[in-house]
């Protein structure tokens, strides 16, 4: 027993995400974006919505990333964009993880007919073209970033449901759940007290892996005009301004790079977290 405990500890140490250079880079990028978001008004050289400059200025010393159709400074808009994209994607992941975990927990705990019904429902959602449904919901609710978050949550929860259900089914066979059932603790208590520590780790890692996807979907909806609305400086909708004037390369390029770096950073972190988990959980997360 002593030996096994030690082994787990030591393997965790050697796989700690701080030993993975990519994870460190990822954390660094996120820290930078967070600081930029928090201190945007002090860091950004101009007011993101001020239309003071000239139209479509190419990048220069005065406007590092140039200006857009409405004479606005793109660098300032990219910096302020972090205030929309980052918090909303995190919110989106938190919402869908919560929703999915609840469904998965009910499914795994109740078992029987409830379980097979809920799992059929998740099957259907998996078969769904997520972005089509999200577009429809976002369009119906009215184009707003808040509604885009709701729309994507509706299509993004099933992965968590599957994971949590699987983990609960595994745990159900484990001795400690049986033991506490023997001790007469109520079913809800068993679920919450005994299983939460076993569930929160994998769910957290899956959520970390999904933040990048969430950001991509969210900015995708904004790109299509179904998310953040002008004049909000949202990265996806800024890229769509670039699509309208594709010969002015700087208009779309820099907001897109902002999305890419943030998503890449989240993926670096998510990957490292998954690799740091024990191999079986990691495999469950990959499937």
């Amino acid at each position: 027993m002593k030996i096994t405990l030690k082994k787990i500890k030591s393997s965790k140490n050697s796989n700690s995400i701080w030993r993975q250079p990519l994870a460190v880079v990822g954390v660094g990028i996120i820290v930078i974006w967070t600081l930029l978001a928090i201190f945007a008004p002090w860091i950004a050289p101009y007011n993101p919505n001020a239309q003071d400059a000239a139209k479509f200025l190419a990048p220069s010393a005065a406007h590092w990333m140039g200006t857009d159709e409405l004479n606005r400074d793109i660098l300032s808009r990219v910096i302020f964009g972090a205030r929309i994209s980052l918090p909303y994607s995190l919110l989106l992941v938190a919402l869908s993880a919560t929703l999915g975990s609840i469904v998965g927990a009910i499914s795994g705990y109740a078992g029987g007919k409830v379980d097979s019904f809920l799992m059929r429902v998740t099957d259907v959602f998996f078969a769904f073209p997520g972005i089509v449904l999200a577009m429809a919901v976002a369009a119906a609710l009215g184009p707003q970033i808040r509604n885009a978050v709701i729309a994507i949550t509706i299509v993004a929860w099933p992965v968590y449901a599957r994971l949590v259900r699987g983990l609960i089914l595994n745990a159900k066979q484990n001795d400690y759940v049986t033991a506490s059932a023997l001790l007469g603790s109520s079913s809800l208590r068993t679920l919450i007290v005994d299983l939460r520590p076993n569930l929160s780790g994998p769910v957290f890692v899956l959520a970390a892996l999904e933040v990048g996807n969430a950001l991509l979907l969210l900015s995708g909806l904004s790109f299509l005009g179904l998310g953040a609305q002008p004049p909000a400086s949202e990265w996806g909708s800024m890229v769509s301004l670039g699509a309208e004037n594709f010969d002015r390369w700087w208009v779309g390029l820099f907001p897109g790079l902002a999305i890419l770096t943030a998503v890449l950073a989240f993926n670096f972190i998510g990957d490292a977290l998954r690799d740091a988990m024990d191999p079986r959980t990691a495999k469950a997360l990959r499937d």
Partner: peptide, 22 residues
Amino acid sequence: IRVFSLTGVSMPAFWTALTAFY
């Protein structure tokens, strides 16, 4: 290859399309 493949799944498709088209 790991960095490249991770970059591949991190690129916003609409932006890649735009950049490639330009």
